[in-house]
């Protein structure tokens, strides 16, 4: 490839997509692993934060708050460059997996915890009034409803995790951005390759985001009649002047 003239990246970028696609595969793999393992762990953590046993509760709270409060990049470095100082060495990809799973678990735990809180108290009242045990109440009444409520935010979280995988490039995992950066460094065509990378991310993210949006509208319709009455207004409200 020749050196780039100021605007040539506008039409050159498609040429780079095939080179970058394997990186997309890695990014998707990381997303699937982090969410596939992270969400069930998050669910477990959410239940643990509601537990009566103090040790369980506090362990879960610490894991969640640390996982949510520390930047993912720092988590990545902690696992990849921090652990070796105490003798635990992980390769780049496993390190990334560990860090992302922790992150996904922490964020999803919080979402699930909030969803459980959103289930109206009357539901557990009615269940207990029927003499159902705490376990059965959670299993048949509370958790099914909480699951429904938590699906839209979890879909959004998955998209966020997909974006987060770009950080794995910093610890040399050979995903999309890593390949893009390497190519850019070789051919000095950063703008071109990064544009190609951006397009690839867009192609995956935008449909997913629209899907998540539709999903939350559809699932959200169950709870409030007042909301539906309000949604009937189709055109946006004019505020200052009619622009």
């Amino acid at each position: 490839m020749s050196t780039v003239t100021p605007l040539s990246w506008l039409w050159e970028w498609p040429h780079w997509v095939p080179t970058l696609l394997p990186g997309l595969g890695v990014a998707l793999l990381l997303t699937v692993i982090s969410c596939g393992i992270g969400y069930p762990l998050g669910f477990l953590l959410a239940l643990m934060t509601e537990a009566r046993s103090k040790p369980l509760k506090w362990t879960a709270l610490v894991l969640v708050e640390v996982g949510r409060g520390i930047p993912i990049l720092v988590l990545l470095f902690v696992v990849y460059q921090g652990l070796p100082s105490v003798g635990i060495l992980f390769d780049a990809l496993p390190s990334a997996c560990i860090a992302f799973v922790w992150s996904a678990a922490a964020y999803s735990a919080e979402m699930i915890r909030v969803s459980i809180g959103t289930v109206p108290r009357g539901q557990s009242d009615a269940s207990y009034a029927l003499s159902m045990s705490r376990f059965d109440t959670y299993r048949y009444i509370v958790l099914p409803q909480a699951a429904r409520i938590s699906i839209p935010p979890l879909v959004s979280l998955t998209i966020t995790m997909f974006h987060a995988t770009s950080l794995a490039s910093v610890i040399t995992v050979s995903e999309l951005m890593h390949i893009a950066y390497q190519q850019g460094a070789i051919y000095f065509n950063y703008m071109t390759v990064f544009t190609a990378a951006a397009v690839i991310y867009l192609v995956i993210t935008v449909p997913a985001a629209i899907f998540a949006d539709r999903l939350s509208k559809r699932l959200g319709g169950v709870t409030s009649v007042r909301q539906t009455a309000f949604r009937r207004r189709r055109t946006p409200a004019p505020i200052v002047t009619g622009i």
Binding site: V4, S169, M177, M191, L202, V206, A209
Partner: peptide, 24 residues
């Protein structure tokens, strides 16, 4: 909004820092 939020922050960062530099 879709474009800005549909691309990871790292990519925007690289585009502005590396990409722009390349365009002088």
């Amino acid at each position: 909004v879709h474009i800005v939020r549909g691309v990871p922050a790292l990519v925007w960062l690289f585009i502005i820092f590396f990409g722009m530099a390349e365009l002088n």
